[in-house]
Structures are given as structure tokens and as C-alpha cells.
Design a protein around this nucleic acid. Structure first.
Length: 192
DNA sequence: AACGCAAGCAACCGCCTCATC
DNA sequence: TGATGAGGCGGTTGCTTGCGT
């Protein structure tokens, strides 16, 4: 489940525990956060009596223990949302997760790599996907395909065939683009 | 029943950003 | 204005589990 503990500058020198979380540790973390909140992740493990580093506590809480976490299979709608947002935003998992209540960036990232990555290559054009691989969240990414090449009289938007034979049109992608524009999450322009 | 392989997923690592001094 | 520290994020790892042979 969890990789073998390896030396880490952050945890090792502090004698912090690594690896899978036990039920007891979960209980301690949950009750501490419910009682005191998590204003300071670095101080939290010490205050709570956990032999974990703050980062580990934060990750465990956000990805697994939060009460509003939605677990289980992704719905069809969620899949479509992820596909569309990934097409628009690239690997900005946290931004994608913010549009899916109850889902974490880690969960979406895992789901993408195990399920949707393959679908994406047929759902969208293969070359768009390959192009995206060159742009991390930290770099400006070109709004792919239909966006950075807006339709014109000489370059009309061509609907993209999906697996089920339906089409993904420029309107669909515009929808998500506008959604993020309104939410203040406008993607960086590659020419900015 | 035993083995090998691939997929799924929790967790770690390291870098980046931002706030504070 | 640069240094520092903490939080946040994406990439990656490797153990577990399920399935096929």
C-alpha cells in the first residue's frame, strides 16, 4: 500500500513516523482538528501527540479524513467534468478538484492516471493530449486545440468525435472556460 | 492452487508560491 | 528587498489486490 520508509529531510531527522496511518492515528488527528482546527500544520502533530510531520497530517486530513470527502466511484457527470476541465486546465488537479465537491486533487489525479488518461486520448484529439504533457501547472499552458485556435471563417471549429459517437463542440469547452473565468480561475494565456 | 502481471490508490518527495519579518 | 518558513501542489513511488493463465 505504502512505499517503504525512506530517509526524508523533513521527517527522518525528527524521528517522525512514516508509512500507512493506523486507525488510532486517524482518531487522534480527527479529534484534534475537530477540537482545535488546523491553523498550523507544523505544530499540529506535536500538539496532538502524533509522531508525524505536518505535511503528512495535512495530506491525510485533506485526502482521507475530511468529513465532506465523497468516496466511491466517480459518476458519469464527474468523469465528463474532469475530462473537460483537464482539457481546459491541464494537470491543475487542485483547480479541477475545486469544481468537484467532495473529491480531492489526489483522488482525481489517481483516477485520471488509472481511468481517464486512456479515454482522453480518444475523447479529445491525441495531439492535444501529447501537447499538454509538455506544460505543467507551473508553466503557462496553451489553451488547447479549439481555444487557442479560435474558430474563424477560415478555421471553423470542428466537433470532436467521442467514443459514443457524440460530438464535443467548441461550445462545450467554452462552457468550462467561461465557468472558470467567472470563478476567477481564468487560465493563463500562453502569450501573456 | 500457485504464479505473474497490471491496475488502483495511499502516501511521500521535492519544488513552487506566498506571507512575514 | 532579500531571507526564511509554512502551506500547497503535482509528480512519483511501491504496496495491495484482483484477474488471467
Amino acid at each position: 500500500m505504502v512505499r517503504a520508509p525512506a530517509p526524508s529531510p523533513c521527517c527522518e531527522k525528527m524521528g517522525m513516523k512514516k508509512g500507512p496511518w493506523t486507525h488510532e492515528e486517524d482518531e487522534i488527528l480527527i479529534s484534534h482538528i475537530q477540537q482545535y482546527g488546523h491553523a498550523n500544520w507544523r505544530a499540529l502533530p506535536k500538539q496532538a501527540g502524533l509522531l508525524r510531520c505536518g505535511k503528512s497530517c495535512r495530506l491525510r486530513w485533506f485526502n482521507y479524513l475530511r468529513p465532506d470527502i465523497k468516496r466511491g466511484n466517480f459518476s458519469r457527470e464527474e468523469e465528463e467534468t474532469i475530462l473537460n476541465l483537464h482539457k481546459l486546465l491541464g494537470n491543475r488537479w487542485s483547480a479541477i478538484a475545486s469544481s468537484l465537491p467532495g473529491r480531492t486533487d489526489n483522488e482525481i489525479k489517481n483516477f485520471w492516471h488509472s481511468h481517464l488518461k486512456k479515454r482522453s486520448r480518444t475523447y479529445f484529439r491525441l495531439d492535444d493530449y501529447d501537447q499538454q504533457k509538455h506544460f505543467s501547472s507551473k508553466s503557462t499552458f496553451p489553451v488547447p486545440g479549439l481555444i487557442h485556435e479560435p474558430p474563424s471563417s477560415s478555421n471553423p471549429a470542428v466537433p470532436i468525435p467521442n467514443n459514443d459517437g457524440s460530438k464535443t463542440s467548441i461550445e462545450d469547452i467554452d462552457f468550462w472556460y467561461n465557468l472558470f473565468m467567472k470563478a476567477g480561475e481564468a487560465p493563463k494565456s500562453s502569450t501573456a
